[in-house]
C-alpha cells in the first residue's frame, strides 16, 4: 500500500473529527462524578456555615437581678426567680426536676453570692448568657431587612450579627439541648483512642512484617501466616468489636475504657499494617540487601540501616525519578 502523503498539507495525514469528538466527550464525562461530588460537598459546607450565622435582635443584660435571702439554696433561688418571671408552679418544678433542663437553667443563669452589702450577704441571679435574644433572622433576610429592623429597635435593644457556632462548640460536652451541645468529648476521645491504638498497632505490625519478610523469608510458617494475615485483614470490624468486648472489657476486666477501645482498634489495624509494611519491604530491591551484606553488615544492620529506611522512603526501582535523599 502506498504510504506517501498525497499533498504536503497538515490535513494530509488524515483526520477523523467524529472520533476525536467522542474521545473528548468521554474524557469530560469521566470528570463529571468528581465535579458532582465536590459540588455537593461545597454545597453542604456552605449551607452549614450559612446557617451557623444569624442576624439577631438582643436586649442587653441589665446586670444583677432580684435579690434573695442568703440562707436559700441555689435551686430554691432559681425556683423563685422562675416564678417571678411568670412561670407557673408546675412549670418551674418540672424545669428544675428534669436533669437536662436544670443544667441548661444553671448554665444560663448564674446564682451568685454577694457579701458586705449594706443589708448583709445575699444571693442574686445573673442571667449567665449575657444578652437575651429577642428575635432571630436568617442571614439573608436579616441583611435585607437590616435598616427596617434597626428602626424598630426597642429600649436597650441592639442588632447584631451573631454566630451560633463558636469556639466553645469544640470544647463542650454532648447534650440533648443544641445550645449547650459540643464535640469536645468526641475530639479528645478520638485523640486518645487513636494514638493509643497506633502506639500498639504500629510497633507490633511493623515488627511482624520485618520478621516475616526479612527473617523467615521462605518456609511453611511464613506461608501459613501469610494466608491468615490476609484473611484477618478482611474480617469485618464488628467481629473485632465483639472480641474486644468479650476479652478486654469482660475477661480481662478492663471495663468500657479508652484502653479497651484502643486495644481493640489496635488489633483491628495490625493485619492491615502488616500487609502494607510487607509490600513496602518487598519493594526494596534485593540488590540493596546484597550490597549491604557484601560490606559486612549483619542481618540486623541490613534490615535497620538499609531496608527499613529505603522502605520508609517508598523508593522502588519502578519509580521513574527517585526522590532526593
Amino acid at each position: 500500500m502506498n504510504r506517501t502523503l498525497s499533498s504536503p498539507s497538515p490535513e494530509a495525514f488524515g483526520t477523523d473529527p467524529w472520533k476525536t469528538r467522542i474521545d473528548r466527550t468521554f474524557a469530560r464525562a469521566l470528570v463529571l462524578p468528581l465535579v458532582l461530588a465536590i459540588g455537593l460537598l461545597v454545597l453542604l459546607l456552605g449551607d452549614t456555615l450559612y446557617r451557623s450565622v444569624s442576624v439577631q435582635v438582643v436586649r442587653a443584660d441589665e446586670g444583677p437581678g432580684r435579690t434573695y435571702p442568703f440562707g436559700l439554696a441555689a435551686t430554691e433561688v432559681l425556683r423563685q426567680e422562675l416564678l417571678a418571671r411568670g412561670y407557673t408552679e408546675e412549670e418551674a418544678s418540672y424545669l428544675l426536676q428534669d436533669p437536662t433542663e436544670r443544667r441548661v437553667l444553671f448554665l444560663q443563669n448564674r446564682v451568685e453570692l454577694m457579701w458586705n452589702t449594706q443589708e448583709g450577704p445575699f444571693r442574686y441571679v445573673v442571667t449567665g448568657l449575657g444578652d437575651e435574644r429577642v428575635a432571630d433572622f436568617s442571614l439573608l433576610e436579616g441583611l435585607r431587612r437590616w435598616e427596617e429592623l434597626k428602626a424598630g429597635l426597642g429600649e436597650g435593644e441592639r442588632l447584631v450579627l451573631n454566630p451560633w457556632l463558636d469556639q466553645s462548640f469544640l470544647t463542650r460536652t454532648p447534650s440533648r439541648s443544641p445550645l449547650t451541645a459540643g464535640i469536645g468529648v468526641a475530639i479528645w476521645g478520638t485523640i486518645w483512642v487513636l494514638s493509643l491504638a497506633l502506639l500498639i498497632a504500629i510497633p507490633v505490625g511493623i515488627g511482624t512484617a520485618i520478621l516475616l519478610e526479612e527473617y523467615l523469608r521462605e518456609g511453611t510458617l511464613n506461608r501459613i501466616l501469610e494466608v491468615n494475615l490476609r484473611n484477618l485483614a478482611g474480617v469485618p470490624s464488628i467481629v473485632y468489636g465483639l472480641l474486644g468486648l468479650a476479652i478486654f472489657v469482660r475477661e480481662m476486666g478492663l471495663g468500657p475504657t479508652i484502653l479497651s477501645a484502643a486495644l481493640t482498634l489496635g488489633l483491628l489495624g495490625i493485619p492491615v499494617i502488616v500487609v502494607t509494611a510487607r509490600e513496602s519491604l518487598r519493594a526494596v530491591p534485593e540488590s540493596l540487601r546484597q550490597a549491604a551484606f557484601a560490606l559486612g553488615a549483619t542481618r540486623r544492620q541490613v534490615v535497620f540501616r538499609v531496608v527499613v529506611p529505603a522502605a520508609c522512603r517508598g523508593w522502588s526501582p519502578g519509580s521513574s525519578s527517585p526522590p532526593p535523599a
Partner: peptide, 17 residues
C-alpha cells in the same frame, strides 16, 4: 569475612542515601 573482601555488583546498586 565480608568486611575484609569488597564486592561490586553487575548493576550499580547505591543505597537511596
Amino acid at each position: 569475612v565480608r568486611r575484609h573482601i569488597g564486592m561490586v555488583f553487575q548493576k550499580p546498586n547505591p543505597f537511596p542515601k
